[in-house]
């Protein structure tokens, strides 16, 4: 197996802590450096992991430490700047979703990556959820024929008053529910169906002042497939974020959620349902869901083998373009 992969985690919010915990618990990985501009969380983690070095400034950390892999888990607006520094220094990196706050924000990174190859990955963790992975397999294998139409949604009960913190400021988040949360759904749709060519959308703020709380969009793909996407973080009765995608093919129907997958085929004229229980396999360490462990394992293995990852930042850029097109179509509407 060789030496451990030495990791630095930059940004110790919710996702930074989660990745630190998982990386510290899976084999062949050493969390060596943690970066945050606040002391509280750093000193707490250091109590259990005395060998970890902590920094307030990520540039100092990259300069002084011998690091094989960087995790970027800061507010969205800092993602591409830190990623650029990693590429310059030829250090593989993992960046949480979304890639950035706009297409322009992502462009310099994508241009540099064309010239300099560095292993990288973006945190579209839903691709590691068993049901969504199975859905992809079934669509690719032609089980329901050619996809003709879809409808999809992502909801969570999160925001029912003015939000506080970076997520609700456009300059640090790049947008509300669409850029921060429904980016997962957009990524799954592009993963399932390929390139989208036309987007018409409407976004709306109810509780937030600066960002969107609701998004409704119509999308047309290169293949001719078209359908709807609807998302909000301000609907009641969704304790956890939930995604649902329903696809009509010319031979059947596929319905996929985080929990289950249902298929109808014209051949059999019957429904078949599989649950996540049917697909479950244990992981080395579960913190917040097996998908995060699978994602981190793939990242670490790709660095060790010096290979591209399955979910590189080009996927994030493609999603960013779709999201921006939806925002733009909204602002261009007739008054």
């Amino acid at each position: 197996m060789g030496d451990s992969i030495k990791v630095a985690v930059i940004g110790m919010g919710k996702m930074g802590i989660l990745h630190t915990g998982i990386l510290n618990s899976i084999s062949d990985v050493e969390v060596r450096v943690l970066v945050d501009n606040q002391d509280t969380i750093l000193s707490f983690i250091k109590a259990g992991l005395p060998s970890v070095c902590t920094y307030k400034n990520y540039e100092d950390a990259l300069r002084h430490e011998d690091i094989d892999l960087v995790y970027i888990t800061t507010p969205n607006s800092l993602h591409t700047k830190i990623a650029l520094d990693c590429v310059e220094r030829e250090i593989p990196f993992f960046v949480e979703k979304p890639l950035g706050i706009s297409v322009d924000d992502c462009l310099p990174l994508m241009e540099l990556l064309e010239r300099k190859r560095v292993t990288n990955m973006i945190g579209y963790s839903k691709r590691y959820v068993d049901t969504f992975r199975k859905g992809k397999e079934l669509i690719d294998s032609g089980y329901i024929g050619n996809p003709i139409y879809f409808k999809s949604s992502m909801y969570v009960s999160q925001l029912f008053s003015r939000g506080k913190g970076w997520r609700y400021k456009k300059e640090s988040s790049g947008g509300g529910v669409l850029n921060t949360l429904a980016t997962h759904l957009v990524d799954l749709l592009l993963w399932y169906f390929g390139n989208a060519i036309t987007m018409v959308g409407n976004t709306r703020s109810q509780y937030s002042k600066d960002v969107d709380d609701f998004v409704h969009a119509y999308m047309i793909f290169e293949s001719g497939l078209s359908g709807y996407m609807d998302a909000s973080w301000s609907v009641r009765n969704y304790r956890l974020p939930e995604i649902k995608i329903e696809v009509e093919g010319d031979k059947g129907i596929l319905v996929v959620t985080d929990d289950f997958l249902k298929i109808y085929t014209d051949d059999t004229s019957s429904w078949k349902t599989s649950y996540k229980q049917d697909f479950f396999k244990g992981v080395e360490f579960d913190l917040g869901g097996p998908e995060y462990t699978l994602e981190n394992r793939h990242m670490v293995d790709s660095v060790r083998d010096n290979k591209e990852t399955d979910v590189d930042v080009a996927n994030g850029f493609r999603t960013q373009k779709v999201i921006e097109a939806i925002y733009k179509s909204n602002s261009g509407k007739m008054q």
């Binding site: 915990g21 998982i22 707490f44 109590a47 259990g48 360490f285």
Partner: peptide, 15 residues
């Protein structure tokens, strides 16, 4: 379990 497992993952014996 989320708190237990987080403390476990960070080796936080003190917690």
């Amino acid at each position: 379990n989320v708190v237990t497992d987080l403390a476990l993952s960070l080796n936080a014996k003190n917690i």
